[in-house]
Design a protein around this nucleic acid. Structure first.
Lengths: 214, 214
DNA sequence: GGCAAGGGTGAGCGGGCGCTTAGTGCGCCC
DNA sequence: GGGCGCACTAAGCGCCCGCTCACCCTTGCC
């Protein structure tokens, strides 16, 4: 039976596609460990231990420790592209779609903070080939957001001087959520998403920006 | 001869206070190495090698590898606080001071990217005590920016619903510059600083925000 | 029941890690 | 100008890393 799509924001089981059950448990354990201590500070013994297996079991499903990071990074980036693409292709005006894109992207970074941390901050630990593959996905992420902003400028909904610079700033704002967000903190992912969507609309000078908030 | 204060933005020699010359060279080497590969992926042999010394030389000036990170982190954070405090206490209205704070903070993150990277992203590699000390400095950073925004709201210059949330977002934007900025890229630290100052003024709904840009 | 396949384990290899120690060269003070 | 102190080095200790290998269970098919 096909695993049903989970509700937005959380990271219920985005790893359903990783097929042997033991391989998925190992991957999940690696995500946790990498997010907590970083790739280099994590040992293969720690990963295997979290998955309830012996150190050697890891090498039945993955060639190296780096392959684990590579897989996590690719799946995570694909999810990020999917989130932004869905928002970009939705119905509604540029402002509506940009707000939607930002709030879901932020919710993903806050709610699935462990995954997002690995995805966004452990890129440099990959080898050159894997790194290049991931960078291509990043360019897609950038293009989706830039597309919405360009459209808003063309239609006159947005007032932006430097489209590329503003695109970088918008993504930057969302991505950094993975660094500071704390699950035990005072804000829910949804609240941060809503706040950030409003702030971004202001950044692009959307007509009537923030009007709905006041 | 006293080392003259360097011009703003760069990181010519902010480590003048580190006194034995060899200790400073080691620290500088550590900053480079940590920024490039991360704390855990950097070996003491690498640090000593970059400083042109034998591995053992490191332990004459520093007790452990972690002490190097601790020192770098503290000096870096003190510099960050100083930059923001200077901007916050300057003359002029809230908008002017906020723009000044953001642009100099961004210039520091972009120009001194190696230092800023270590300062912002290697915090978790510190032990609990050192970490707590650094977190106190971070609270000061937050307080300086929040102070300017609060003042702007009181005076009616800014229109902000969620002061703390907006403060986090503003700092977030600046800090993330250390992650993506590329010295060989198309923008200078000054250009990014100016762009970000404008974007932040829009975020806080400053009266006539961006008017000077158009 | 016999047997092949494959997920899993215990033990351990080679190597590089953080850090130490014994010794060396050199400048400075009396 | 002899001795002391200190910055520094060569060598290496003990440890733990990523990863491997020989072997062991369980499962499914004839």
């Amino acid at each position: 039976m096909s695993t049903a799509e989970e509700t937005a924001g959380g990271e219920a089981q985005p790893w359903g596609e990783v097929t042997p059950d033991a391989a998925r448990r190992l991957l999940l354990a690696a995500v946790e460990a990498f997010a907590e201590r970083g790739y280099h500070a994590t040992t293969t013994r720690d990963i295997a231990g979290r998955a309830g297996m012996s150190p050697a079991a890891l090498y039945i499903h993955y060639k190296t420790k780096e392959e684990l990071l590579h897989r996590i990074s690719r799946i995570g980036h694909e999810k990020a592209v999917e989130i932004l693409r869905t928002a970009a292709r939705a119905e509604g005006g540029p402002a509506e779609r940009l707000a939607d894109a930002v709030s879901s992207f932020v919710r993903w970074h806050a709610g699935g903070r462990t995954t997002a941390r690995v995805v966004q901050y452990e890129l440099d630990s990959l080898g050159p080939d894997a790194r290049a593959e991931i960078l291509a996905l990043r360019r897609q992420v950038d293009a989706e957001v830039r597309g919405i902003i360009e459209e808003g400028v063309r239609s006159g909904d947005f007032d932006v001087v430097d489209v590329q610079g503003t695109t970088v700033a918008v993504l930057s704002l969302c991505i950094d959520v993975a660094r500071w967000f704390n699950v035990d903190g005072p804000r829910t992912p949804e609240e941060v998403g809503a706040l950030y969507a409003d702030l971004v609309l202001r950044m692009v000078g959307a007509r009537a920006a923030g009007a709905a908030q006041r």
